[in-house]
């Protein structure tokens, strides 16, 4: 499966995912306190500098912004006719910077590092959240995405023979039933390997 990670081994890549996420949150908060185009320009230059340090080619950066372009264009047009050119530019530029900043975190951080950062972030909440269950859910979901894609594909092929591969119900229903059956089997296999007792062993260890 593809993802957005662009390896260049820069110092930005080597920063921990948690640091990058925290920086993104701070940057995203600060940018909303900026009230004029000059301030936004400064944020933009700041961000471009980081893209350069991270050695991200222009096309990779553009790919992060591309899905949002159409909506941003619509907003620009609406703003332009309602409140004027300057506000229209301001709003669209601010969102472009924000999307690109988030995109920078995405292209410089591996999915596995992100997942680890989430688990680390949840650790203080261990009292209320069963972290190993969250880990299991994330790992399983990532592992099963290609499998589920394959099931959707198989069901569509089977329905094609019947001339029903464009019929959404004929594709959805068998896909869902197969997914649920598979989920039940996976859960039974996990419990057979004593996943359910993991909580208890953990607490026992803590007591010791």
């Amino acid at each position: 499966m593809t993802n957005f990670y662009y390896p260049s081994g820069s110092i930005v890549h080597r920063l921990s995912a948690g640091v990058k996420l925290a920086a993104l949150i701070i940057f995203g908060t600060l940018i909303f306190t900026v009230e004029d185009l000059a301030g936004l320009g400064f944020c933009g230059v700041f961000l471009v500098a980081f893209f350069c340090i991270a050695q991200i080619p222009l096309r990779v950066a553009y790919r992060q912004l591309k899905p949002a372009l159409f909506l941003l264009l619509l907003i620009f047009i609406a703003q332009y006719f309602m409140v004027g050119f300057e506000i229209a530019v301001f709003v669209v530029v601010r969102f472009s910077i924000l999307i690109l900043a988030a995109g920078l975190v995405t292209v410089t951080t591996r999915v596995s590092e992100m997942v680890e950062a989430i688990e680390a972030g949840l650790r203080p909440l261990a009292k209320w959240v069963a972290i190993e269950k969250v880990s299991l859910a994330i790992t399983l979901a990532i592992r099963f995405i290609p499998v589920l894609g394959e099931i959707v594909h198989e069901v569509r092929d089977a329905q094609k023979v019947r001339g029903m591969d464009r019929n959404i119900i004929a594709v959805l229903l068998p896909t869902i039933i197969r997914t649920l059956k598979m989920a039940t089997e996976v859960a039974e296999a996990l419990d057979a390997r004593s996943f359910a007792t993991l909580d208890r062993t953990r607490t026992d260890k803590q007591k010791l």
Binding site: L136, A137, F144
Partner: peptide
């Protein structure tokens, strides 16, 4: 429950 949640997310 955990597996249902995970596999539905994958779905």
């Amino acid at each position: 429950d955990v597996v249902y949640i995970a596999l539905f997310a994958a779905l």
